[in-house]
């Protein structure tokens, strides 16, 4: 086995974004098998962090920095992977568009959910804060996402989650996507009331929810 795979794994476990990029660039430059780099390097690393998280040994900074390092490295490999280079094929567990709804500029909870989804093998497209319904849908359409995840921390912006569902209905796109919601003041009942496909209280629960919906 090429020793670089072990180095990639360690870079992910350490949450070292710069090193992950550097190693990914080396994979491309030296024409090392990118699928193996993903499976024996990036995935191995994120799985190790995920396991430590589940057992309570790893904390949020560990998981979030590992997810960032993984994303940065994978972005470098995207082109060669898309070109079908390497033995076999790499596929993510599903694509998810994630953002905070219109009128709300709270970032952190959404970022935690994004990191945990990434560490669970999903491909996450984080469109940021204060995002309109049409922005969620445009991104989902562009990347071919199956799940749209909308966050809201304020009782005053929860209604933007409802607007998102209504927008999809109006565009006749409702059946194309699964919509999940979350955030402090939201609840399972609110999710049902607005016709969302799921609600999760914590980031861990959001990962389970996405596994079920995929």
């Amino acid at each position: 086995m090429n020793p670089i795979f072990e180095e990639i794994k360690d870079a992910i476990v350490d949450g070292d974004e710069d090193l992950a990029i550097e190693l990914a660039e080396k994979v491309v430059a030296e024409k090392i098998d990118p699928v193996q780099a993903v499976q024996l390097g990036f995935i191995k690393g994120i799985e190790e962090v995920g396991a430590a998280w589940t057992s309570g040994e790893a904390f949020l900074p560990d998981v979030m920095m590992a997810a960032d390092a993984m994303k940065a490295g994978m972005d470098v490999l995207e082109e060669v992977l898309a070109a079908g280079e390497g033995e076999g094929a790499y596929e993510d567990k599903g694509k998810i568009v994630l953002g905070t709804v219109e009128g709300d500029i709270h970032d952190i909870g959404k970022n935690i959910v994004g990191a945990l989804l990434t560490s669970a093998g999903f491909k996450v497209y984080d469109i940021g804060i204060d995002q309109k319904a049409e922005d969620f849908v445009a991104k989902a359409d562009e990347v071919g996402a199956k799940i749209i995840a909308a966050s809201s921390l304020l009782t005053t912006t929860m209604k933007s989650q409802k607007v998102l569902v209504e927008y999809l209905d109006a565009q006749n796109l409702r059946s194309k996507y699964k919509i999940i919601i979350g955030g402090g003041p939201t609840s399972a009942k609110w999710g049902e009331d607005i016709g969302a496909d799921g609600w999760a209280e914590t980031a861990d629960e959001a990962v389970e929810l996405c596994k079920q919906l995929m």
């Binding site: 309570g56 904390f59 949020l60 900074p61 952190i108 909870g109 935690i112 914590t202 980031a203 861990d204």
Partner: peptide, 8 residues
């Protein structure tokens, strides 16, 4: 403070 296990 943030609970570093859950982010809450």
């Amino acid at each position: 403070v943030t609970d570093m296990s859950t982010g809450s």
